[in-house]
Design a binder for these strands. Sequence first.
DNA 1: GACCTGACGCCCC
DNA 2: AGGGGCGCCAGGT
Length: 115
Amino acid sequence: MKNQSYFEKVYFVTKKIPFGRVSTYGAIADYLALGSARMVGWALNHCHSAETGIPAHRVINRKGELSGRNHFPTPTIMQELLENESILVDNHVVKNFKDLFWHPGEHLEPYDEIA
DNA sequence: GACCTGACGCCCC
DNA sequence: AGGGGCGCCAGGT
């Protein structure tokens, strides 16, 4: 599966984020070695949320902030989903972000080997 | 085919 | 240490 669109690559990695953990746009971009974090967020925007099984709510910016919450059906969905995974959110920022942070590159094989 | 946009992040004042 | 600027690059128009 090497000819996936950029979206699918991002989705692929996003789906690997374990329940109860979070990752960042930058980490995913870094793992995929496809340049910019911006595109990751942009790619996720193209996906219509959890219907496709993509835990987009687990992807946040490098400050631990729920920067994408406004793109969900309602701005509270993202936080609700996180709290549903025992992730505490305070003022749109994930608590214990440092501990919950999950970097794809440190837990997955290189993308080329598993794609 | 050129131009614009975007759920970000680093580098430089 | 905080704030602003600029780079990233695929897709849509």
